[in-house]
Design a protein around this nucleic acid. Structure first.
Length: 486
RNA sequence: GGCGGCAUGGCCAAGUGGUAAGGCAAGGGUCUGCAAAAUCCUCACCCUCGGUUCGAAUCCGAGUGCCGCCUCCA
């Protein structure tokens, strides 16, 4: 049973075989750091996080690199608007990136290269391209000549003639800012305008173009050819197409064996994006400042929301979907946090036969099929519900359907599989509100007394009072009441 | 205009030839002083029209609708 992945390059699912057996090199395009990340970013990095976790679980050693683009017009604009520098702006949003992404339990990459750290490597690449006739310099700019690369368009499946013929008014060959010879040539190096931050180069003061950074950083950190290159579907063209053009003419080998692209997060069916202004930041969701649903969303619910859809499909972001994911997470969480004490069992019970093989197999089959996390989650939900049911049977009815060993086995299996999807109970996310436990217990005593004396108006009053401050009561058959925060 | 993708129950979403996973929600029964919790049960002619096949949500053709990319974008 082998892992298959959908490769954008071939438009097919292909069995995954890394260049070096047992080792995987993986690069994903990171963010341009000029603002907080939104849910679309979260989805992308969560997906690559799961790819990586799954590969590791399958026994591969994975080297995962994700860049920060810290030279860019938007960063510059922001810096100028606030009277600071690109470095200040990008440092700030890199910190914001880590703050948000870590809360979503996305594991850190092995390396986070920045463009500003790779200027010499970029120069080398451009120089080589120029020497070999793939690039030309004009007045301090350097452009890649796409017509020199016969395979240009192979990733995105387009042909230059067609693009030119059909692009309508969007291709503007007479833009005075550009001196390129052909409309689809793209900048490798841009001459600095007065007052802009600039780096010394063989072509004069300037800064790198958008696409060259990734070619340079992949080469510097991972080598000429990598196993997996990931990114949002909106990067297929031109960004990844251009990376291929830059790298492959020099190395003579495929830049990446597998090109993976995630689908967009949409809002009312439209892509979530900065320019449309329809984005919701990760921070807003976590903090509860999203206007459609002004309460903090559990990071794991966001994970569940994302992972319940297949990664290549568009995912529509709505309040209802988030609420459903929160409720769904609640169910999983109950399965993940059994009250072993109430079961009179030790959570550490040694188990002879480890995990539940059928669940693991089903999960693995789903994940092997191009990371079908939605189908994999079904296995988790079934485990969680089985556990919950067993717990209730034992606690409420004194019955049981599973042996202690089976119970432990399911529990461990659930925890184990959930971890592959990054679904884990985060201890700091358990809210410790300022409720005075002793006070609650005292009220409960009063209420129990009232119930015994059939003063139901009084008992209901107490229940309502507690409910109003977010405490839910559960009356048990023995007359005692449990309570939990709603 | 070109290239690519998607259309499955109230909502989300798997399923790529043998008669529809899972989640959320909803309805009903049991339990309960009433609730809650628990528990049991119920809930899909798979966008349309043709075709292939013993058999199609699944393959082929046509159509309709929606989305992405072709400009910065995860």
């Amino acid at each position: 049973m082998s892992l298959t992945l959908y490769n954008t390059l071939t438009r097919r699912k292909e069995p995954f075989t890394p260049i070096h057996p047992g080792q995987v090199t993986m690069y994903c395009c990171g963010v341009t750091v000029y603002d907080d990340c939104h849910l679309g970013h979260a989805r992308s990095y969560m997906v690559w996080d799961v790819v990586r976790r799954y590969l590791q679980w399958r026994g591969y050693s994975v080297c995962y690199v994700q860049n920060f683009t810290d030279i860019d017009d938007k960063i510059l604009n922001r810096a100028q608007a606030e009277g600071s520098t690109m470095q200040v702006v990008s440092d700030r949003y890199i910190a914001a990136y880590f703050r948000d992404i870590r809360r979503l339990n996305i594991l850190d990459a092995d390396e986070y290269p920045r463009v500003t750290e790779h200027i010499p490597a970029i120069h080398q690449l451009i120089q080589a391209l120029e020497n070999q006739g793939y690039a030309y310099a004009i007045e301090g700019d350097v452009y890649y000549s796409v017509q020199q690369f016969a395979e240009y368009g192979k990733l995105s499946g387009r042909q230059l003639e067609q693009m030119q013929a059909g692009a309508g008014g969007r291709v503007d060959p007479i833009d005075p800012e550009f001196k390129k010879k052909y409309p689809f040539d793209f900048a490798l190096w841009k001459a600095a305008k007065p007052g802009e931050p600039a780096w010394e180069s063989p072509w004069g003061q300037g800064r790198p173009g958008w696409h060259i950074e990734c070619s340079a950083m992949i080469r510097a950190r991972l080598g000429d050819a990598i196993d997996i290159h990931g990114g949002g579907g909106d990067l297929v063209f031109p960004h990844h197409e251009n990376e291929i053009a830059q790298s492959e003419v020099l190395t003579g080998q495929p830049l990446a064996r597998y090109w993976l692209h995630n689908g967009m997060v949409t809002v009312n069916g439209e892509k979530m994006s900065k320019s449309l202004g329809n984005f919701t930041t990760i921070r807003a969701l976590l903090e509860g400042s999203w206007s459609d649903y002004p309460q903090p969303v559990d990071p794991m619910a966001i994970r569940l929301f994302v992972l319940q859809a297949h990664y290549r499909k568009p995912l529509d972001f709505t309040k209802d979907a988030i609420v459903a994911a929160e409720n769904g997470w609640q169910t999983l969480k109950e399965g993940l946090t059994l009250d072993w004490q109430r079961l009179n069992l030790s959570p550490q019970m040694p188990i002879p036969n480890e995990l539940d093989a059928e669940s693991v197999n089903r999960f693995q089959t789903a994940m092997n099929d191009d990371l079908n996390t939605a189908a994999g989650l079904a296995v988790l939900f079934e485990l969680a519900k089985t556990l919950k049911r067993e717990f209730n049977l034992r606690c409420y009815q004194g019955l049981s359907e599973l042996t202690d060993i089976q119970l432990h086995q399911r529990s461990q299996t659930l925890t184990h599989l959930a971890q592959i999807l990054g679904l884990e109970i985060q201890s700091e996310s358990i809210p410790e509100s300022g409720v005075d436990v002793a006070w609650v217990e005292a009220l409960l005593q009063q209420r129990q007394q009232a119930r015994q004396e059939k003063r139901y108006a009084e008992s209901d009053r107490i229940r309502n009072e507690l409910q109003a401050i977010g405490i839910t009561l559960i009356d048990q058959p023995d007359g005692q009441s449990r309570w939990h925060r709603s």
